[in-house]
C-alpha cells in the first residue's frame, strides 16, 4: 500500500513539474524576446493575443507543422536521437531540485522535490553533461561542416567548463558536507545563504553556467555570425524546437541549481507557510534568469580560442584557489 501511495505521489509530482516546466520554457522564450526588445528599443512580439501572450503557442504550432527535413547524407538514427538526448537531459535535471518546504497533504508529508537523492549534486553534473552529447551528435550527424564545427566547439567547451563548473561548487560542498540538495537548502535556513560564505564561487558558477548553456558571450557552438547557427543548422520543425526547448530548460535548471546551492533555495527574508515556500524559490530563480537575458543584450561574443584560454588559464586556477581558501578557512575555524 505504501508503495502504491509512493508511486502515485511521484507520478503526480513528475507530471506537475513537467507541465509547469514546459509552460515556463514556452513563456521564457516570450519573456526573453520581450526583455531583449525593451533593452533594444523595440517592442518584441505583441501581435498574437494581448501583449503577445499567445506567441509561444503560435510558435509551437508553427514548429509542429513545418516540414521535417533530414539531410540525405545524415546519420539518420543519431540525427533523430540527438535532440531527444538534449531535451531529456535538460528536463531530468529537475528531478532533484527542491522547490519548497515539506507540506502536509491527505495526512502524508510530501516533500516538494521529486527525488531527494543523497548524491543529488553528482546527479546534476552527470545529467547536465549528457545534454552536451545531444549537441555534439546533432552537429556531427547532419553532414554539414558548420554543424561539425559547432559540435567540435561544443565538445571542447563542455570539457573545459564542466571542470571549472564542478570545482566552483566544491566550496559549497565542503561547507555543507553533503551532496543532497534538500539538505544543502536546509543548512542555509535563517540567512546562512552560501553566497555570503562563497561569493567568488557564486560568480565563477555563473560564468561557467553561461558557457555550459551556450549563451552569449560563450555561444560558440551556434555562433550565428560565423557558423550560421552551428550544431542545429540542419534541424527543422519539431526537432529544432526540441533543441530550443532544451536550451531554455537547461537555462532554468542552471538558475534553479544556483538558487539551491547559493541563494538558500526556498528560504526567504520572511517565512511563508510551507505550502507557499516555493514562491521564494521561483522568485530567486526568476531573478537569475533575468540576469542571463540581460547579459545577452549587453555583451559581444568571445572567440573560440579565447574562451578556451579563459576557461583553463583563468577560471580553473581561480576555482582551485577558492577551494584552497575555503579549506584554510575551515581549518582555522575548526569546522
Amino acid at each position: 500500500m505504501e508503495l502504491a501511495y509512493f508511486l502515485i505521489e511521484t507520478v503526480v509530482k513528475v507530471v506537475a513539474v513537467f507541465a509547469v516546466l514546459m509552460l515556463v520554457v514556452a513563456y521564457l522564450t516570450l519573456a526573453e524576446r520581450k526583455i531583449l526588445g525593451r533593452i533594444q528599443v523595440r517592442y518584441g512580439p505583441n501581435r498574437v493575443g494581448p501583449f503577445g501572450l499567445f506567441q509561444p503557442i503560435a510558435d509551437g504550432i508553427k514548429a509542429f507543422f513545418k516540414e521535417d527535413l533530414v539531410p540525405a547524407r545524415a546519420d539518420k538514427t543519431l540525427f533523430v536521437i540527438a535532440p531527444m538526448i538534449s531535451i531529456t537531459a535538460a528536463i531530468s535535471l529537475f528531478a532533484v531540485i527542491p522547490f519548497g518546504e515539506q507540506i502536509e497533504l491527505f495526512g502524508r508529508r510530501i516533500s516538494l522535490t521529486i527525488a531527494s537523492l543523497d548524491i543529488g549534486l553528482l546527479y546534476v553534473f552527470a545529467v547536465a553533461s549528457l545534454g552536451e552529447y545531444g549537441i555534439v551528435l546533432g552537429g556531427w550527424s547532419g553532414y554539414n561542416k558548420y554543424g561539425l564545427m559547432g559540435a567540435l566547439r561544443a565538445a571542447a567547451q563542455m570539457i573545459s567548463y564542466e571542470v571549472a563548473l564542478a570545482l566552483s561548487v566544491m566550496g559549497v560542498l565542503m561547507i555543507a558536507g553533503t551532496l543532497n540538495l534538500v539538505e544543502i537548502v536546509r543548512q542555509q535556513a535563517g540567512w546562512h545563504w552560501n553566497i555570503l560564505y562563497q561569493p567568488f564561487a557564486f560568480i565563477f558558477y555563473l560564468v561557467c553556467a553561461l558557457a555550459e548553456i551556450n549563451r552569449t558571450p560563450f555561444d560558440m557552438p551556434e555562433a550565428e555570425a560565423e557558423l550560421a547557427c552551428g550544431f542545429n543548422i540542419e534541424y527543422s520543425s519539431m526537432k529544432f524546437a526540441l533543441f530550443f526547448m532544451a536550451e531554455y530548460a537547461h537555462l532554468v535548471a542552471v538558475c534553479a541549481i544556483a538558487t539551491t546551492l547559493f541563494l538558500g533555495g526556498w528560504d526567504g527574508p520572511f517565512n511563508l507557510p510551507p505550502a507557499l515556500s516555493w514562491i521564494w524559490f521561483v522568485a530567486k530563480t526568476g531573478i537569475l534568469v533575468y540576469f542571463f537575458i540581460w547579459e545577452r543584450g549587453t555583451f559581444p561574443r568571445l572567440r573560440y580560442d579565447q574562451i578556451m584560454r579563459f576557461g583553463w588559464k583563468f577560471l580553473l586556477p581561480l576555482t582551485l584557489a577558492n577551494i584552497v581558501g575555503t579549506g584554510l578557512y575551515m581549518v582555522l575555524r575548526g569546522m
Partner: peptide, 16 residues
C-alpha cells in the same frame, strides 16, 4: 559589424 560579433543591441541603437 557589432551584430557579427554578437553584440545584438548595438544594431538596434544604430538603426534608430
Amino acid at each position: 559589424h557589432a551584430l557579427d560579433m554578437g553584440a545584438m543591441t548595438v544594431l538596434f541603437y544604430c538603426f534608430r
